[in-house]
C-alpha cells in the first residue's frame, strides 16, 4: 500500500506500508529518490477520542501519542505533532495518474492555499514557460504569485478574478504536448 504524506513543509513524500500481525514495514521515499526502510515490531495502537497511542516493544516501553482526525470520506488523516500538522492520504493509483498525465501531456495546477483570486495573469490559449506568473492569490492579507510548474499551452483557467478558492481547487490546466 502506498501513501502520500504532506508535511507542514508541503513536501510530498511517499510511504509504503506493509502490515501483518507482528510487524509493520514502513518505507519512505527520501529526498534523492531512494527509499529508507524501517521495520517496526510489536506496535500496539489504540485510538480513542481523537487520540492515537502507539506503544512499542522495542525500544521497551516507548510510547507516542498523536491527536488524529479523519477528514471527510477520502481517506485523509490529519495528525499533529510538535512540528505541526501532517496530512496523510492514499497515493491512489499514483503510477496510473502519472501514465495518464504523460499520455495527454496535461498538467493541472491546483491551489496550495485558500484565499481570493486577485488577478488572473494569463488566458486560455497562452503559451507559458516554467516559472511564469499565472495568477495572484490573496490570503492572510498577503499577495502570493502562483507560477507555472510546466511549459505549454493554457487549456483552461478554473477561476475568475474576485473568486474565493479553497486548497486543492483547480487554477489552471496546461497541456505540454506538441508545439504547433
Amino acid at each position: 500500500m502506498r501513501y502520500s504524506v504532506t508535511s507542514p513543509e508541503t513536501e510530498h513524500r511517499l510511504a509504503t506500508i506493509s502490515v501483518d500481525e507482528q510487524a509493520w514495514e514502513v518505507a519512505l521515499a527520501d529526498e534523492k529518490g531512494g527509499e529508507t526502510k524501517q521495520l517496526i515490531k510489536g506496535a500496539a495502537l489504540t485510538l480513542r477520542d481523537g487520540l492515537l497511542e502507539l506503544r512499542l516493544e522495542s525500544p521497551a516501553g516507548m510510547r507516542v501519542v498523536f491527536p488524529v482526525h479523519r477528514q471527510g470520506n477520502d481517506g485523509v488523516v490529519v495528525l499533529s505533532t510538535a512540528l505541526g500538522s501532517f496530512r496523510l492520504l492514499p497515493a491512489r493509483g499514483s503510477a496510473h495518474d502519472a501514465a495518464a498525465g504523460a499520455r495527454s501531456g496535461a498538467k493541472s495546477i491546483k491551489s496550495s492555499m485558500p484565499g481570493k483570486v486577485l488577478k488572473v495573469l494569463c488566458k486560455a490559449g497562452d503559451l507559458v514557460e516554467v516559472g511564469q506568473p499565472l495568477l495572484i492569490i490573496e490570503a492572510m492579507k498577503m499577495e502570493n504569485e502562483i507560477r507555472s510548474t510546466a511549459a505549454g499551452k493554457i487549456d483552461e483557467i478554473g477561476v475568475q478574478t474576485g473568486q474565493s478558492i479553497s486548497t486543492g481547487d483547480l487554477l489552471v490546466k496546461i497541456s505540454s504536448g506538441e508545439k504547433k
Binding site: Y3, E9, I17, L45, L52, L54, F66, V77, L79, L88
Partner: peptide
C-alpha cells in the same frame, strides 16, 4: 533540525494514519 525530527516521526505518522483508517 526540522527534517531530522520529521524523518524520525514519519513512520509513526504513517502507521497512525493506517490504523486510524
Amino acid at each position: 533540525i526540522f527534517n531530522e525530527e520529521q524523518a524520525r516521526l514519519m513512520p509513526w505518522l504513517a502507521m497512525g494514519a493506517v490504523e486510524t483508517l
